[in-house]
Structure formats: structure tokens, C-alpha cells
């Protein structure tokens, strides 16, 4: 199965990169662009066969390495 992990900055943590991307979009003439937040997307192929077990393991991976929980949140999707 495959795990898809989104890592994003927590609310309240300033994101200067997202801000710069937002300004660039405005400069390109895109109207109505609000707050832009930039994050990371990680795909992991897993040998697991049980979705719940896989999710628990990826959760552990996020806590230990994939996200810095001081500043980042993560969301996990498991695909069969």
C-alpha cells in the first residue's frame, strides 16, 4: 500500500515562503489570492497489508522524522 503524507506549517507559524509565493501570484495578475501556505508532500510505498497498522506506523514516522511537530502539522492518507 501507499501512504501519502502532507506536512504543513501550524497556524500561527509565519510562512515567509508562502507569503513570497502569494506576492508572486499577485504580481502575475491573479486576483483574489488570499493567504498562501507552503508545505511538503511525501509518498511512501509500504509492504503493509493492514491499513490501520500502516497508518499507525506512518504516524510514528511523522512524529520521529517526517514532521517537526514544534512548527508543523501532518495529515496521512493510506491507499490500498
Amino acid at each position: 500500500m501507499k501512504a501519502k503524507v502532507h506536512v504543513t506549517l501550524k497556524n500561527g507559524v509565519l510562512d515567509p515562503q508562502g507569503k513570497a509565493v502569494g506576492h508572486a501570484l499577485e504580481a502575475l495578475g491573479f486576483d483574489g489570492v488570499g493567504d498562501v501556505r507552503q508545505g511538503k508532500y511525501i509518498e511512501i510505498d509500504l509492504a503493509d497489508t493492514d491499513a490501520d497498522g500502516a497508518k499507525a506506523r506512518v504516524e510514528d514516522m511523522c512524529q520521529k522524522l517526517l514532521a517537526n511537530t514544534v512548527i508543523e502539522n501532518y495529515a496521512i492518507e493510506i491507499e490500498a
Binding site: 507559524v13 515567509p16 515562503q17 513570497a20 517537526n68 514544534v70 512548527i71
Partner: peptide, 17 residues
């Protein structure tokens, strides 16, 4: 040291990038 948790907080991208 912050990534190991020996020190609190995090070092983020410089504010002016």
C-alpha cells in the same frame, strides 16, 4: 540540537528568505 529535542524550538527559513 533542536531537531533532537536537546534544545527547544526550531530554526526556520530566514524571514527575508
Amino acid at each position: 540540537l533542536t531537531e533532537t529535542g536537546l534544545l527547544p524550538g526550531a530554526l526556520m527559513r530566514n524571514a527575508d528568505l
